[in-house]
Design a protein around this nucleic acid. Structure first.
Length: 839
DNA sequence: GCTCATCTACTTTTT
DNA sequence: GTAGATGAGC
């Protein structure tokens, strides 16, 4: 690409909305931009287009549909972009095109994404296209970050001050817990976490306390749900704080309250673009509708890009309906489908397409590709005996690919491979295995950097220095490190503060003058108050990173970890250093705090060659040469809970998740299912996922194991046969003895891969030291088999288990047996899976 | 007020 | 199975 965009004007902030066409002397040229004889890029671009359309280099290389999506700038457009069809390219080129043709200034384009990552990527890619002018796109960001921007400007209209704090989930839960206790309710019977979830759900729907359904209101806190929600909102206001939902709801309220202001924004935003439209929730939809309104006759230049087949966030409020309804919402909308896929092989697309066709209520797209290579591998379905073997076999295949021993004979980088799991507990076994093998891996997802205990503690100090009214921060750190300021003191402070309607830090300042507190607490509190006074004085006078260091030193916080002998302590100190290092990029402590509350995801170390392990959800938008999809079993995938709670639509969302998984693969895709999996610490027999049945045989190979000795399911435990035994459309190839053998694939022969290589590296992106490990799923399988009926087995019984062989029952608890197996040692299993052995 | 032991729950996760 | 949350005891 060229520098031909160099002289696109840009604005740091708030240019007067003006007609680009009337530009000229008014346009501030970008520093260093060459003078172009008075002819701006827009004019040049348009001239070029008029002469010869293909001469505009940023448009070349687009296929006709993509090009249409880029060039249809006026009027509503819905771009249905299938996986791997160049969605981001269309979005970024479209913005470049709008700029190049002089239809709008950078500051007149509103471009919304869902994640910070997507926003960052878009900025970078536009930057490449336009050559830096993207700095002047102040309205490119996530719904939430744009919401913050609007609110900071107009906070007073919704009863906030413009320096409001943004609370994260953790703060919210603590706050709600206080409210529940203040109401005199039992916080065990009414868990704060659950209520936080309910509030989040309401806010996703755009509902404030008066709007929530009566049933919802009654379902919590002895029917006081609505009051509690209202109390929460009131408390946020006194704290001058917002939760994430408010960042959407307040702007909506604001626009409704001040139509003139809304009109200003209408004039400002000539073009609106929304990425991942299938993931928008009702509140975001309302927000968008308000901003997209135009008087009659004025075109609504709204372009939404999305893929209904990749909607996987229904459970957190996303409304696929928004995308399905687009044409009704925006009359005269043009719908452009992108179906030409540039990512995957025919087989992968064929498998994914056939699978997703089982869903109803789609807009209907079929991906196709020009590539056709007889050497392309079909999607491979593998069976393993249990999850341990699954991990072992995946590890072997990865090593084969790495060595170049695999089918294509080429060596593959670990960076090009990924394991995508349905639930994070599945990651563990792969990690264990890879540690054993000395295989580099990186785990993506889970709690982020700023969610770590030490980072949050440090942040609480910083917040309180900047925002003395931040009671949540105050409560978090008054007694961290330990200062002898326990519950009693904090409660006293709390009551004092609430009674006088002042912040707790101020209350502390008052109370040290009285003799309400014990001398010991009083002294400790005096020190705390003094420290904060000191820091606040320094806030404007010394560099913020220096102050941050001093705060952590003087508060004794770093010492607390230095004196901690636990294994995590050094890592925590390292994280604190990292936190301060990352502050350097910001102008002030306030600027930093704002950033952290909204963004701050860990970056991947691109230099490390490692296999990625992540959930299917976090894999959306990514692609890998080889993709491993383990755990395709009923109850896990589709997840039992999705079926129980979501019914048919739940199943369809699971299927979309499967579709997302398959379409991540460029060249090789391996599916796995196991016959035995440990669920809630108990070994369970499992059935292959119905999604396997929904794959087209033409694009799928069933991997044959090398040897076999298969015991069969044996109809134990009330599950009957494998569904693959039933006569189903594609069941034939799966019900052959070979297939059954595949399910029984044993790999004792493969047990010799032990020992660790040197230089083994593990990267944990976004995971704290204690990620969600060892979690298991709740499923029908368990619900069915764990019954109240006492077991027919007794201590001392000799039994046989399909996985572990013979053993003696050593304990019976309902139908859960503890068995000492002759070879496998002590295990807990359900009695449905063992047989009494005659002795 | 702090520490250890028992109890409990347990998909997905962004902002 | 296991982490995190709570409650009794020091």
């Amino acid at each position: 690409m060229s520098n031909s965009f160099d002289d696109i004007p840009f604005f740091d902030e708030e240019p007067e909305p003006r007609r680009p066409q009337s530009r000229g002397a008014a346009a501030p040229a970008q520093a260093g931009a060459p003078a172009t004889g008075g002819l701006g890029i827009a004019a040049r671009a348009m001239a070029a287009r008029d002469q010869n359309r293909t001469s505009i280099d940023y448009l070349s290389g687009l296929n006709p549909e993509q090009r249409e999506a880029v060039e249809t700038t006026d009027g509503p457009v819905l771009v249905l972009a299938g996986a791997g069809t160049g969605k981001t390219r269309v979005l970024t080129t479209r913005i470049a095109h709008i700029l190049a043709t002089g239809k709008a200034w950078p500051s007149q384009i509103l471009a919304v994404t869902f994640t910070n990552k997507a926003a960052r990527e878009m900025k970078e890619r536009i930057g490449v296209l336009v050559g830096g002018a993207v700095e002047g796109m102040p309205w490119l960001g996530t719904f939430h970050s744009i919401g913050v921007k609007l609110l900071r400007r107009h906070a007073e209209l919704v009863g906030l001050r413009s320096d409001f704090t943004i609370l994260d989930t953790d703060d919210v839960v603590r706050l709600i817990k206080q409210l529940i206790q203040a109401e005199g309710l039992d916080d065990k019977r009414w868990p704060a976490k659950q209520f936080a979830g309910m509030i989040d759900g309401w806010k996703n729907k755009g509902l404030l306390p008066p709007d929530i359904p009566e049933g919802d209101a009654r379902a919590f806190a002895n029917g006081k749900g609505r009051e509690l929600y209202a109390a929460y909102q009131a408390r946020l206001r006194t704290l001058n704080a917002c939760d994430f939902g408010d960042l959407l709801l307040h702007p909506i309220a604001l626009f409704r309250k001040a139509p003139d202001l809304l009109k200003e924004y209408h004039e400002r935003f000539r073009y609106i673009l929304v990425d991942e439209y299938q993931d928008t929730n009702t509140a975001q939809y309302m927000w968008l509708r308000l901003l997209a309104q135009r008087p009659k006759g004025v075109p609504q230049n709204v372009c939404c890009v999305g893929d209904d087949d990749q909607s996987i966030y229904g459970w957190r409020g996303a409304e696929v309906d928004n995308i399905l309804r687009f044409e009704k919402d925006f009359l005269g909308a043009k719908v452009i489908k992108l179906e030409r896929n540039y990512r995957s092989t025919e087989h992968i697309l064929g498998a994914a397409g056939h699978l997703i066709a089982h869903n109803e209520g789609r807009l209907g797209k079929t991906l196709f590709t020009d590539r056709s290579d007889p050497d392309d591998q079909k999607v491979q379905v593998h069976a393993a005996w249990d999850s341990e073997e699954e991990a072992r076999a995946v590890g072997e295949e990865i090593e084969r690919l790495q060595r170049g021993d695999s089918t294509d004979g080429k060596k593959h980088a670990l960076n090009d491979m990924a394991i995508l799991v349905r639930a994070s507990f599945q990651m563990r076994e792969f990690e264990d295995r890879f540690v054993t093998l000395g295989l580099n891996y990186r785990v993506i997802g889970g709690p982020r950097f700023y969610e770590r205990l030490e980072v949050r503690d440090a942040m609480a100090y910083f917040r309180l220095v900047c925002q003395p009214a931040d009671d949540l921060a105050f409560e978090r750190i008054v007694n961290t490190p330990k200062r002898g300021l326990g519950d009693t003191t904090v409660r006293a402070l709390h009551d004092y503060a609430r009674a006088r309607d002042i912040p707790m830090l101020a209350a502390a300042s008052d109370m040290i003058e009285t003799d309400e507190l014990k001398p010991k607490a009083r002294k400790a509190l005096f020190d705390v108050v003094q420290m904060f006074k000191n820091w606040q004085e320094r806030l404007e006078n010394i560099p913020h990173t220096e102050l941050a260091e001093q705060i952590l030193e003087e508060s004794g916080y770093t010492d607390m970890w230095k004196n901690d002998k636990s294994a995590e302590a050094p890592g925590r100190l390292e994280n604190l250093k990292e936190l301060i290092r990352s502050m350097e990029q910001f102008e002030s402590m306030r600027g930093f705090l704002e950033h952290v509350s909204l963004v701050m995801d860990a970056e991947t170390n691109e230099n490390l060659d490692a296999v990625s392990i992540m959930t299917l959800h976090s894999a959306k938008g990514l692609e890998f040469d080889t993709v491993f999809l383990p755990g395709w079993e009923e109850g896990l995938f589709p997840h039992q809970r999705a079926l129980d709670e979501g019914g048919r639509s739940g199943l369809e969302e699971e299927r979309r998740l499967a579709y997302v998984g398959l379409t991540r693969a460029k060249h090789r895709c391996h599916l796995w299912f196991v016959s035995n999996r440990r669920i809630h610490g108990l070994w369970q027999s499992t059935m292959p996922s119905r999604f396997l049945d929904e794959l087209p045989p033409a694009h799928v190979d069933v991997a044959e194991p090398s040897d076999s000795s298969y015991g069969g399911y044996g109809g134990r435990g009330g599950y009957g046969q494998s569904r693959f035994d039933k006569a189903e459309p594609f069941a034939n190839s799966y019900s052959t003895p070979g297939w059954k053998r595949a399910q029984a694939n044993k790999t004792d022969a493969t047990r010799d891969n032990w020992g660790s290589r040197s230089g083994h590296a593990v990267e944990r992106i976004g995971y704290g030291e204690s990620g969600p490990r060892g979690r298991t799923i709740d499923g029908e399988l368990v619900a069915k088999s764990v019954s109240a009926t006492p077991s027919k087995y007794f201590v001392g019984d000799r039994v046989f288990h399909i996985k572990f062989g013979n053993g003696n029952v050593t304990a019976v608890e309902g139908n859960k047996l503890t068995i000492e197996f002759d070879r496998a040692g002590e295990k807990r299993v359900l009695d449905g899976f063992v047989e009494r052995v005659k002795t």
